[in-house]
Design a protein around this nucleic acid. Structure first.
Length: 905
RNA sequence: GGAUCGGUAGCUUAGUUGGUAGAGCGCCUGCUUUACACGCAGGAGGUCACAGGUUCGAGUCCUGUCCGGUCCACCA
């Protein structure tokens, strides 16, 4: 005998091995089949799987498995992302913690080698977790891609080269976002903006002529040493006379002009703005318009430079405090007030971003964005949910050039070389701890001559010299990610795979990387392949905690997917996520939802166990019954087909929550609660084999339908059922997903069954309310005004008797009400349940009074509706009939209840 | 400041062309009934945020307001 509860652990281990051994998840180029392709959003090699991965990949897995079962060539491409800054940070922390070493102690070469070693271990760990989750990725040797492996490096180089040749890549001096902690430039979208409670300081800049000068308001007093001017709005009458005069920077003593610029808001602060071109984006623009000096006072480490000696080398935060203190002492701090402003921070480490003026590599985006914009606007590119289209379009419309160089070591090194002889002035070198000279900075302003090449060129094309050095920077990690849907299939090589699998079918990812990743894939795909990389973008929500907060280690609200799978089984974790995966919606996740899914798995297991128990002595295979024998069969086939229809549609339209819900309610609410219960009485009859064949086929097909969602338990149970359904194929994944068969829909049967269920429920309610012991057989009387209302009950009296546990059921027109009876009404039918000795008259009185109230309310609303001339005139006949029927039912209920109440008294 | 999503039972929520609200959890009552207490049967609990409008009829469509969330944005 099988255990009472499903135990997932062993089953899962067994199946993971089987699936892998059977090479179940491979995809081949098969011109006879339509491919269904998803490339995995490659996880960073930074650590372990979290709930976000669990959701995102479970969605993909469900789609991939389903479409494989739909008969398509399903290809799900596995891989990982080298994760530039994020990974470098992890390794640096690890080094510092374990060996008290910085990356500079190791040197570039050794550090990069250390990260490669880390990748080997971490990659394996990630894919082991993927296997545990049941994700149908082909993880065989050679099928796993990595954004830094050889082929992907080739793609990156090719992309760089082609963009360079088109003139889209350039190096320029700009004010960029600099993270002093990660010591690198970041692109605009790698910066997060947060409201921060800070202060606004009002500072006096005295006139050069000894006058009071001007008062400005700033949130960053430490940058005054870089001031190049004070700007006022040209329309501002208050400052008209000051324009063109000079004022003195406090503490620094340097004179700067007062200028006029439209960018200044008259109403903010004092209406006067200090202009610090090298440390603020707006100021930079003003500075350019007025050809102001661009003095940098904060260096790449966040330390003060080019400022009064007192502050030299000071950290920028400390310098702010000291400057404010000194200003106050000097009597130049007019006032300070509390002020909340948006502070930008690094999306990788959270430290405050410093706008920093330096040379970086950029990609010109306007030409790349245009076709992507057109594709989104025309609807060729589809978003699910569609509401993401507008933000996507707007982002592309306002696109900025993309800063692609990063001053870190881990990543694709920029494929640009310099000849030392030709461009010495533009290159600066330093010596590392091992005494090796390293190129640390390039400036085109001073004449560095770029040679774009994947490998070290043999010689300099100008002077034929051999002293060539590579640009020290690496590319933004998103540069390689942008190529992912192409590079995974070998682009730029014209491989068979690329031809067959590109464009891919769908992109499943989180909306938080819509711009960072999705937009760039779209642009690159259109640029290099002339085709969208995918037509459907399916954006899943974020898994949050119960109160809607993001899960994070620091908040201590993390639910770990691997703990949960160990505790409840993988299927339970998957199903709990899928049940809630309404497109675009965040999921407030709780352990209780996993419990619920686990319970469902257990329900499946027990229903199957019950059916298998009753299979003893029956010789398989049983044919799928061609037709229904009686109402219950007609009804369950209708319910089954309806569920399959919804399940298929959900899988086709990316609404997996709808699929999961339909199958859940069918299996539990219809199949277990009603069909199996009704089937039990047929076990004693010659019909048993027929009923079992229907049960086993419906169950088996439902398992198939559920398999993309919960692969383990379905595979396990299906294996036991296979002999009875005559299936030879070992794996569900290789079988066909159930087809929806409209011929088996049967609305009449459903309606009849609803009557049976309705009457049954009335009787069950009475039993429950008067605490009738389940063993006690009681009887009931059904009566109505005419034969018509009783005919269904008459025909299926057996069902009602069985499901309501009745000994006897009397049905007839105009029957009288027995003594000591509880009364209920279903439609036009009165339901009497004699309860001699059991009835509680007080309780019954309350029940009836409640019935009367609800009947009166229902009558009033229906009468009001029917009294409206316009309702009769405009509403469809069907609605009018329905309303009339409801009125009649309410009337019957009222009369019944009133009569019963009178009887009680 | 712009955009966008949401406000439905105590909690989390579903609701596809407008027809008069459904689920899961929690709570209460009863129950070892030929699988399942991770279960069965039943119950309580909702002016669908608010105000207008369109309509015979609005949770659903339109307008406005309030409250949340998120994304984008150079107001120092």
């Amino acid at each position: 005998m099988l255990p009472k509860a499903y135990e997932p652990k062993e089953v899962e281990e067994k199946l993971i091995a089987k699936w892998q051994n059977a090479k179940l998840f491979t995809a081949r180029v098969d011109k006879n089949k339509k491919p269904f392709v998803i490339v995995i959003p490659p996880p960073n090699i930074t650590g372990v799987l979290h709930m976000g991965h669990a959701l995102n990949n479970t969605l993909q897995d469900a789609l991939i498995r389903a479409h494989r079962m739909f008969g398509q060539e399903a290809c799900w491409v596995p891989g990982t992302d080298h994760g530039g800054i994020a990974t470098q940070n992890v390794i640096e922390k690890k080094l510092s913690k374990e060996q008290h070493l910085s990356r500079h102690d190791l040197g570039r070469e050794k550090f990069v080698q250390t990260v490669w070693e880390w990748y080997k271990d971490c990659g394996d760990a990630i894919f082991n977790q993927f296997k545990k989750m049941g994700w149908s990725l082909d993880l065989s040797e050679g099928n796993i891609r990595f954004t830094m492996d050889k082929q992907r490096a080739k793609s990156v180089y090719e992309c760089f080269k082609r963009l360079w040749d088109k003139g889209y890549i350039y190096r320029g001096k700009r004010l960029i976002n600099w993270c002093v902690r990660c010591s690198t430039a970041l692109s605009d979208i790698e910066v997060e903006h947060e409201q921060h409670a800070g202060k606004l300081w009002y500072l006096r800049y005295k006139g050069e002529d000894g006058s009071d000068g001007i008062v400005i308001a700033t949130t960053r007093p430490e940058t005054i040493y870089a001031d190049a001017a004070i700007a006022v709005n040209p329309q501002d009458s208050r400052y008209k006379d000051l324009i063109g005069k000079k004022v003195i920077i406090p503490l620094a003593g340097r004179s700067i002009p007062v200028i006029a610029d439209e960018a200044v808001e008259k109403d903010f602060g004092t209406g006067a703005l200090k202009i610090t071109p090298a440390h603020d984006a707006t100021d930079y623009e003003v500075g350019q318009r007025h050809a102001l000096a661009m003095l940098t006072v904060i260096n790449d480490k966040g330390k003060m430079i080019n400022c009064p000696d007192k502050y030299l080398g000071m950290d920028r935060d400390l310098c702010r405090k000291e400057t404010v203190k000194d200003l106050e002492e000097a009597g130049l701090l007019v006032k300070e007030e509390k002020y909340t402003n948006a502070v930008s921070s690094c999306y990788r480490c959270g430290n405050a971003i410093e706008p920093y003026l330096c040379e970086q590599w950029f990609v010109k985006m306007d030409k790349l964005a245009a076709p992507a914009l057109a594709a989104a606007q025309s609807g060729e590119l589809q978003f699910h949910p569609a509401s993401w289209k507008t933000p996507f379009v707007n982002w592309l419309k306002n696109i900025q050039d993309w800063c692609i160089s990063r001053q870190i070591w881990w990543g694709h090194r920029i494929p640009v070389w310099y000849c030392r002889h030709c461009s010495e002035k533009g290159l600066s070198f330093s010596t590392d701890k091992q005494g090796r000279e390293q190129l640390v900075k390039v400036s085109f302003e001073n004449g560095a001559q770029p040679i774009v090449s994947f490998e070290k060129p043999a010689e300099c094309p100008h002077c034929h010299g051999h002293d060539l050095v590579q640009d020290p920077d690496v590319l933004d990690t998103w540069f390689s990610s942008a190529l992912w849907p192409m590079s995974v299939f070998g682009w730029p090589d014209e491989t068979e795979e690329l031809n067959y699998f590109y464009p891919t079918t769908a992109m499943v990812t989180g909306y938080e990387i819509l711009y960072l990743w999705v937009a760039r894939m779209v642009m690159m795909g259109l640029e290099f392949k002339g085709q969208l990389p995918f037509k459907d973008v399916f954006l899943n929500g974020i898994v949050r905690d119960k109160s809607g907060k993001k899960m994070s280690k620091s908040s201590g609200n993390v639910i770990d997917p691997l703990n949960m799978t160990a505790k409840y089984g993988t299927d339970a974790v998957r199903f709990s996520l899928l049940m809630q995966a309404v497109p675009g919606k965040d999921i407030p996740y709780t352990e209780e939802s996993i419990t619920g899914a686990r319970n469902f798995c257990n329900k499946i297991y027990n229903a199957s166990r019950f059916i298998l128990m009753n299979m003893e002595g029956i010789q398989g295979p049983l044919p799928r019954p061609g037709q229904a024998k009686e109402l219950a069969d007609q009804w369950i086939l209708d319910r089954y087909e309806t569920a399959i229809k919804t399940a298929r549609e959900g899988l086709e339209k990316f609404n997996l929550a709808s699929s999961a819900n339909a199958l859940y309610h069918f299996l539990w609410g219809d199949f277990c609660d009603w069909y199996i219960e009704l089937a039990k009485q047929r076990f004693q009859t010659p019909e048993k084999e027929y009923v079992m064949s229907l049960c086993v086929h419906i169950l088996y097909d439902t398992l198939k339908a559920l398999h993309p969602l919960i692969p383990f338990i379905t595979e396990e149970i299906a294996a036991s059922l296979r002999p009875y359904v005559g299936e030879n194929e070992e794996f569900l994944l290789r079988q066909k997903y159930p087809e929806f068969n409209a011929a088996l829909l049967n609305p009449q049967a459903v309606q009849k069954m609803e009557t049976v269920q309705g009457i049954t429920k009335e009787i069950r309610t009475i039993r429950a309310q008067f605490n009738v012991p389940p063993g006690l057989k009681i009887k009931a009387v059904l009566t109505a005004q005419d034969e018509k209302d009783l005919s269904v009950a008459q025909e299926y009296a057996d069902y009602i008797k069985l499901m309501a546990k009745l000994e006897d059921l009397q049905i007839g027109v105009g029957l009288s009400k027995p003594k000591q009876t509880a009364t209920a009404t279903y439609g036009q039918t009165a339901v009497y349940v004699p309860l001699t000795g059991l009835i509680d008259f007080e309780k019954e009185k309350k029940r009836l009074e409640k019935d009367i109230l609800s009947a009166q309310a229902a009558m009033a609303s229906r009468q009001a509706r029917l009294a409206q001339e316009n309702f009769i005139k405009h509403a469809p006949q069907e609605q009018i009939d329905k309303t009339k029927a409801e009125l009649a039912a309410a009337q019957t209920l009222l009369l019944q209840a009133q009569a019963a109440l009178a009887d009680l008294a």
